[in-house]
Simulated scan of single mutants.
Amino acid sequence: MVDVQGTVEDGFEPVRDAFVANFARRGERGAAVAVYRHGRKVVDLWGGTRDGDAGRHAADAAPWEAGTAQVIRSATKGIAAVVPLLLHQRGQLDLDAPVGTYWPEFKAAGKERVLVRHLLSHRAGLPVLDTPLTPDQAIDGVSGPAALAAQAPAWEPGTDHGYHAQTYSWLLGELVLRATGRTIGSWVADEIAGPLGLDLWIGLPAEAQSRVGRLAAVEPPAPPAASGLRVRPKQSVADAYADPGSLTSRAFAAISPAPDENAPEYRAAELPASAGVATARSLARCYAALIGPVDGRARLFAPATLTLARTEESAGLDRTLLVATRFGLGFMLHGPSSPLLAPGAFGHPGRGGALACADPESGLAFGYVTNGMQRNVTADARAQALLRAVSHVAG
């Protein structure tokens, strides 16, 4: 039996029950979940082992603690998207301007008409690189932007969408740098994490490295055996991922070989597509601040900016993920392949587990992090069980 720590307010006990059940039935190793409602924390839970590769039953495994943080993979994209939207809100970035307005070298290879909003809505046609970057090149701050400046689009920009799994890092990071003169990690630290008191980083500082648990790939429990005829499934993202020539595989392999996500240098890299580090508590608090005041602090998004974040820009079959996805400007929106808190919710999952999102109508904000990476891209069974519990309580 896993010792779950933390607190839940009266009425939110089903969230704790779901969290405990994730360890008992869904292969959880170590995790945390937090929920804010109308700017006030109502759930703050953690449990299991700090390191995913320690194993659930290792007697000598260090426990997950209240301040344990975790690499959140693509849930970083949602945090990163806050930056261009706030820059737009402040009049420092035009969402309808060509990217080349801020980044002149980007105009090459037929990309003159790529707009800033195309980057945020995965419509730029740049999910792959003809020559993948090495792990060292991916984090050097120069090679990624240079490769994308020279890269020709895979489709006519603005006409369709496909998830920019890795290239989002260099596209968004360079855009923010050119528009502000500051790296995206420093912008998040100074303008978001610092003022809100968040344990959240895009570019983990050396002094915080010891707080981060280790990621590990884990197999989810096998589903109950089904009786009757077995039907061969249609092609899925897993099938495409196994095909090295597919757009799906090439998008996720824009860094090749895959980097060591537990390495200090990877955690320290400012890769806004994949290398953010956060606690569940800070993810929930950040999203709560997007939709309303938190502890007396003014909300981050003005009403018009919040509308931009969750107004559909892309919808339908995703060229990369091969499922129907919906995106606003930088955020995933609620849909069959990525269920969130409610139809009007916005947020972002991380491949294999993490999830953060908010629903302005109910005033709910949710954050979940885990060190056990299971085989999923847009919807993790553990995160979904927690979301269902939160939604049921909120009624």
Rank of each mutant, 00 (worst) to 15 (best):
E9W: 15
F12R: 09
V20G: 04
N22D: 11
F23C: 05
R25Y: 15
R26I: 10
R29C: 07
G30C: 02
V35N: 04
D44L: 06
R50T: 00
G55A: 06
D60I: 00
P63H: 05
G67C: 07
V71S: 04
I79Q: 08
V82Y: 13
H88V: 00
G91T: 04
L93M: 03
L95D: 06
A97S: 11
R113W: 11
L129C: 03
P135H: 02
Q137T: 06
I139K: 10
I139W: 06
L148A: 00
A152M: 13
A154I: 13
W155A: 00
E156F: 15
P157D: 05
G158W: 12
I184Y: 12
W187V: 00
E191D: 15
A193W: 01
A193D: 03
G197Y: 10
L200M: 04
R211Y: 10
A216G: 02
A217R: 13
E219T: 13
R232A: 13
S246V: 05
S249T: 06
S256L: 05
P257N: 09
P257E: 07
N262P: 06
E270G: 05
L271S: 01
G276F: 12
I291W: 12
V294E: 01
G296A: 09
A302S: 10
E313D: 02
D318S: 00
R326A: 01
F327I: 00
G330L: 08
M332F: 15
L333Y: 03
L333K: 05
S338T: 14
G344I: 07
A345Q: 02
F346E: 00
G350C: 04
A354I: 08
S362P: 02
Y368P: 11
N371M: 08
V377N: 01
Q384G: 09
A385Y: 11
V390D: 00
V393E: 03
